[in-house]
């Protein structure tokens, strides 16, 4: 199933490190996955596990000058001219900027602060359209109105001239989505798109993203720590811990047949309505990124820890159809896989 024609984005062995005064932080360490056109991949994990940095690496927008992609490849297949290797491009160069905004777009966690306060939302939506498609201001504004309508903002003609401070959080996130989709990108990176919103608004935004995906056919990489959101949207799920993929599979497999002890712990920590038992949490705490444990990074918190886990880092083992887990527990029973299995 390694058919490249069905791939939009292929990430292999991605390493994004940060140089800090205390040492090197391996924010993303040897991650591999790929995304099919028009499909949704969910990335879950707790705060600081490298989810956002993965997305920023794909956009080639890793915070400078401390962060840097130090290894691996990110190949984008969505261009008509042929595949392009993103890590080989200059972050601010014309080739990368051509991809950014036009082929791939990103929506961010904080709609409150992610819009420039001194421009109308229309002006901010227009900016990318005018830049990439060479539209004049009038046509750009028409596009902005059309996009606002598409994301379900009422009275778009009036809203287009309003400033971010005049909109509610949900509206701003809709405007962000309108901005990201204004050039019809093939890949949308959604970094915690609902985290800062009310629960009712969250549901609306998720529905909106699903509708727009049906409509426009873009692939989505959905990054969140909210397993409920992932369950609603993603077909395939990738679980991250300390910059590494620990489990990968279809949403069904990861949710109902979770194998990796970390995923099992994550799922157990979701409160269930109607259940009257004490909420389970994962023992211990996330190790310091400056002082990572030897072997498996999760062994300090793992209930099934074995002597081997303290010595060697486990590879990924296939634990089912298109389902793999990076854990020694599955070493004997299952075959070892090197590249991630696809959907």
């Amino acid at each position: 199933m390694n058919d490249n024609s069905k791939r939009l984005l292929d990430v292999q062995g991605l390493k994004t490190y940060f140089q800090t005064e205390q040492g090197t932080v391996r924010a993303v360490d040897d991650m591999s996955f790929w995304v099919a056109p028009g499909r949704t991949l969910g990335i879950v994990g707790e705060s600081g596990c490298g989810k956002s940095i993965t997305a920023l690496s794909i956009m080639h927008m890793v915070p400078q000058p401390r962060g840097r992609i130090v290894g691996g490849s990110i190949t984008y297949y969505g261009r008509e001219e042929g595949p392009v290797e993103i890590t080989a491009l200059k972050p601010h160069g014309p080739a990368m900027r051509e991809l950014r905004g036009r082929h791939m777009a990103m929506i961010f966690q904080e709609p409150m602060t992610s819009l420039t306060p001194v421009y109308t939302i229309g002006q901010q939506i227009m900016e990318a359209v005018v830049h990439h498609e060479g539209l004049d201001k009038q046509a750009g504004k028409e596009r902005a109105v059309a996009m606002l309508e598409k994301v379900g903002i009422s009275a778009p003609r009036q809203r287009v001239d309003e400033y971010p401070y005049q909109l509610s959080g949900g509206m701003r996130q809709r405007a962000m989505i309108a901005m990201a989709l204004s050039c019809s990108p093939q890949l949308l990176l959604a970094d915690e798109p609902t985290t800062a919103l009310d629960v009712t608004i969250q549901a609306q935004i998720i529905d909106l993203l699903l509708d727009l995906q049906q409509d426009l056919g873009m692939a989505i990489i959905l990054i969140t720590h909210d397993l409920g959101v992932i369950g609603e949207m993603a077909e395939r799920v990738l679980v991250m811990y300390m910059g590494k993929v620990v489990e990968f599979g279809s949403a069904d497999a990861v949710f109902y047949r979770a194998k990796h002890p970390y995923t099992v712990g994550l799922l157990a920590s979701i409160p269930q309505i109607g259940e009257d038992k004490r909420l389970v949490s994962i023992e211990g705490s996330v190790p310091s990124p400056y002082n990572l444990p030897r072997g498996c990074y999760f062994h300090t918190r793992c209930p099934h820890v074995m002597p081997r886990c303290r010595e060697d880092e486990p590879p990924s083992f296939a634990v089912g159809e298109g389902h793999e887990a990076k854990c020694w527990l599955f070493a004997e029973k299952e075959g070892e896989v090197h590249a991630p299995v696809s959907n």
Binding site: G101, Q124, H132, A180
Partner: peptide, 29 residues
């Protein structure tokens, strides 16, 4: 360091345009 600078950059406009149109425009107030 603000989020809106990242948003502007994600649109693919030139870095100098990112700087002048967004953070400078706010900082000059």
């Amino acid at each position: 360091g603000r989020d809106y600078v990242r948003t502007a950059r994600s649109k693919g406009i030139k870095e100098i345009q990112v700087l002048i149109r967004h953070p400078l425009r706010v900082a000059i107030n």
